[in-house]
C-alpha cells in the first residue's frame, strides 16, 4: 500500500515536472492567439526544429548554452515566417484557412526535418549529471529539474516583458483592440509578428529542454502539439497561471494512467478531459466568456 502510494507520487512528480514543458508550448499558443486570434497547428514542428537546431549546433562543438541560444534565434525566425507566409495571408482572405495553412507549413517542416536530420530519434547531450536527488523517497533527476526550471523561467521572463515593458503593453493593447491600438500609433502588424516570433522562441526553447528527455526525432512534433493544445484549451487561452496548473496536471495524469492502465493508454485521460472540458466550458477553465455582438 505504502509502496504503491510512493510509486504513484513518484509518477505524479516526474510527470508534473515534464508537464511544465507542455505548459510552455501551450503558452506559445496563448501568445499568438492573444495577438491575432490564430494559433499554429504546426507548433510541434517548431519545437522539433528547435530541438534539431540545438542538437546540430552542439554537434558543431558549441557549448550547450550557445546551442540553446541558437535554437531560440532559429525559433524566432521560424515563428515569424509562419505568421508572414501562412497566417497573415489567410486572415486577409477572412476565412479559417489559417488552420490549413499552418498545418501545411508544419507538414513541410516535417518533411524537411526528415530529409535533413533523418528519421531516427537522436539523444540530446546535456551538461548536467544523470544522477537524481532524493526528496522524502521521491527521486527527481537533474534533467527533470532543468525542464521545470527552464519552462518556468522562460514563461516568467516573457510574462515580465509583456507586463513591464512598453512594447509588451503595446502587444497586449493590440490583443485587446487592434483598431484602437493602431489609433495610438502602435503598428499592429509588427506587434503580431513579434508575438509569433516570441511564440517561436518559446517553442524552440521547449524543444531544447524536452529533447534531452524524449530524444529528438521528426515524430516528436505531432504528440507534443496535441498535448500543448489540450493544456491551452482546458486552461483557456488567457491565463498563464492556468496553463501551468493544467500542464502539471496533464503531465502527472499521463504518467499515472500509463502506470495503471498500460503505456498505450498514457494519453487517453488527457484527451477525454479535453473533449469533456471543451463541451462543458468552451472558453476554458480559466478563460472569460466571449460576448457575441450584433
Amino acid at each position: 500500500m505504502n509502496l504503491d502510494f510512493l510509486a504513484l507520487a513518484q509518477m505524479a512528480v516526474s510527470g508534473g515536472l515534464m508537464g511544465m514543458a507542455y505548459a510552455l508550448v501551450a503558452y506559445g499558443f496563448q501568445l499568438t492567439h492573444a495577438a491575432g486570434k490564430a494559433v499554429n497547428f504546426g507548433q510541434g514542428e517548431l519545437v522539433m526544429l528547435g530541438a534539431f537546431t540545438g542538437l546540430s549546433l552542439s554537434g558543431c562543438g558549441l557549448p550547450y548554452w550557445a546551442a540553446v541560444t541558437g535554437a531560440m534565434i532559429a525559433g524566432a525566425l521560424l515563428g515569424w515566417f509562419v505568421e508572414r507566409t501562412a497566417v497573415r495571408l489567410a486572415l486577409q482572405q477572412h476565412n479559417e484557412g489559417w488552420v490549413l495553412l499552418t498545418i501545411i507549413v508544419g507538414l513541410f517542416w516535417f518533411s524537411a526535418a526528415e530529409n535533413i536530420w533523418g528519421r531516427e530519434d537522436k539523444p540530446f547531450p546535456v551538461p548536467w549529471p544523470e544522477s537524481a536527488l532524493d526528496f522524502f523517497g521521491i527521486s527527481v533527476t537533474w534533467q527533470e529539474l532543468a525542464v521545470a526550471a527552464g519552462a518556468l523561467g522562460m514563461m516568467t521572463l516573457i510574462e515580465l516583458a509583456r507586463r513591464y515593458t512598453m512594447i509588451g503593453i503595446a502587444v497586449q493593447a493590440v490583443s485587446a483592440d487592434q483598431d484602437a491600438a493602431e489609433l495610438c500609433g502602435i503598428r499592429s502588424r509588427t506587434a503580431i509578428s513579434l508575438s509569433w516570433a516570441v511564440s517561436g522562441i518559446a517553442a524552440a526553447f521547449a524543444g531544447t529542454i524536452i529533447g534531452p528527455v524524449t530524444t529528438v526525432g521528426p515524430t516528436m512534433a505531432a504528440a507534443l502539439t496535441l498535448k500543448a493544445f489540450s493544456v491551452a484549451v482546458v486552461a483557456g487561452l488567457g491565463s498563464s497561471f492556468g496553463l501551468l496548473l493544467v500542464g502539471v496536471a496533464l503531465g502527472a495524469s499521463e504518467n499515472i494512467s500509463g502506470f495503471l492502465l498500460g503505456s498505450g493508454w498514457r494519453e487517453a485521460p488527457a484527451l477525454i478531459l479535453l473533449i469533456v472540458g471543451l463541451a462543458l466550458r468552451p472558453q476554458g477553465l480559466f478563460g472569460k466568456k466571449i460576448i457575441r455582438k450584433v
Partner: peptide, 20 residues
C-alpha cells in the same frame, strides 16, 4: 474602444506610445 483588460494608467501610457 479602451483597452479594457489593461489599467487606466497603461491605457494613458499607450496614448503616448510612439514617444516612449
Amino acid at each position: 474602444h479602451l483597452f479594457s483588460p489593461l489599467t487606466v494608467e497603461e491605457n494613458l501610457l499607450l496614448g503616448a506610445y510612439p514617444r516612449l
